[in-house]
Design a protein around this nucleic acid. Structure first.
Lengths: 240, 240
DNA sequence: CCGAAGCTTCGGTCGCGGCCGAAGTATCCT
DNA sequence: AGGATACTTCGGCCGCGACCGAAGCTTCGG
């Protein structure tokens, strides 16, 4: 039995304000150092170190050492998905202190429009992009949890999307990362593209300068070049 | 901005062992009384009452009063989805105390095979059922976050599936409940059918006696009648 | 080899929150 | 009415864990 205590433990790790701030800062998929995370959480490095140890031990974060720096990142896509789903609930029920209809700030608006979700694109932009790819038969979400069709692969490669060559590790059973997986978008309530394909598309868009990250948040902005690019490549027209 | 403190608060509510046990007990979509939940959590009724008040205040539970009984249930499908995603992470990283390959108990096996997820079917059974319906063109997950086709509606109604007649409330914007939504299955890593259609199918299967709940868990069992029913209605053959 | 930087470990303080016993309120039954 | 049941509120106890200061460890640069 997956003990309910493991269930509580995972949630408790996210439940501390300092750790929640750290996780929120890591939600864009980047790897940050302990000091940066301490700043983000508003605590001293010692305290942050303790929290990071717990998060790593609990399987929520993975750490990579480079010289005297230790880079922390979200451990897996399923952890990122869990964090997104908690955010979704918090957004729904969090602000109802006095029945107010959840005033949505401009910050929120930007997040709803386009953001990163761990390592792939999310928000309205990503959902519309997924729609286009499905419409053209490049991606199929109805089959076996999501698949990239041969035509889709050809199309994306021609566009400059580079997929990981890690097929050796990809064969390691059902625990391995799904190639092209639907991911339910918390703001749009519809699926966008996650998995290796989603990550590669995101990298491609960043590489082409079509989108760029906004300051220290998960929100992203579509550049003028991006508007042209999305229009010509995907027949997708972004307003604003 | 959806404050990160709301984020932490939602997670912290799930993070307490007693509350986690209560939520786990409610994951099958039933509504339970405070006393039953106190037993499930292993605490006294007073303590349980306090926890339930917090969970309700936090928007995770909804409560319905009937005479001197107060029935508590999971507040929404998105909350149920959050709980499933936390379980998913807990199942992955929870048992790795000593690198052991997560020994899967018989209880777990039953859960993986067939269970309820809030108000609809989940597990291998549900995923295979979804596959069949997609294959026949009764359900379409590629369109607009999931849709029931006209043929699908005809087929299900003929089968005795009864949909809610709440179309008045269903018109209340995008926040309203999706009619037929894909829900990523944590054990199978593939989508099954959620939303109103998923709930109606689950009700139908229970009503026909095709499946029945096992004692106090979320696991369900396919009856002999169910094996015949799934085979004739969906061309779906259940072993074991 | 020395100092600085990044991070962790240790030790001690302190406050939040879980827990229960007892008492209070509401509802049902006869 | 009287008693039983379901649940909540109040008050006090207690322990876990978050936090920081100080000290230790490792790596990098000169």
């Amino acid at each position: 039995m997956v003990s309910t205590s493991a269930f509580a433990r995972s949630a408790a790790l996210v439940g501390d304000p300092a750790r929640a701030n750290m996780l929120a800062a890591l939600m864009d998929g980047r790897a940050l150092t302990a000091k940066e995370l301490a700043r983000a959480a508003g605590v001293t490095p010692q305290t942050a170190s303790g929290h990071l140890a717990r998060l790593t031990e609990g399987g929520l974060l993975a750490v990579e050492q480079q010289g005297r720096h230790r880079y922390h990142r979200v451990a897996s896509a399923s952890v990122a998905h869990m964090l997104e789903s908690i955010m979704s609930v918090a957004a729904e029920c969090g602000g109802v202190a006095r029945g107010k209809p959840i005033s949505v700030g401009p910050r929120d608006k930007a997040l709803r429009h386009a953001r990163t979700c761990y390592d792939h694109l999310a928000g309205e932009l990503a959902v519309r992009l997924a729609d286009k790819l499905i419409e053209r038969g490049h991606v199929d979400f109805s089959a076996d949890g999501g698949a990239l069709t041969p035509e889709g692969a050809t199309f994306l490669i021609a566009l400059g999307v580079q997929f990981e060559a890690k097929s050796s590790h990809a064969a390691s059973g059902r625990g391995s990362r799904l190639f092209c997986r639907p991911c339910l978008d918390w703001s749009e309530r519809r699926s966008h593209i996650a998995g290796a394909v989603g990550a590669a598309i995101c990298q491609c868009c960043l590489g082409h300068g079509w989108v760029k990250r906004l300051d220290g948040t998960r929100a992203i902005e579509v550049t003028p070049a991006g508007r042209r690019g999305f229009a010509s490549a995907f027949d997708l027209f972004i307003e604003n």
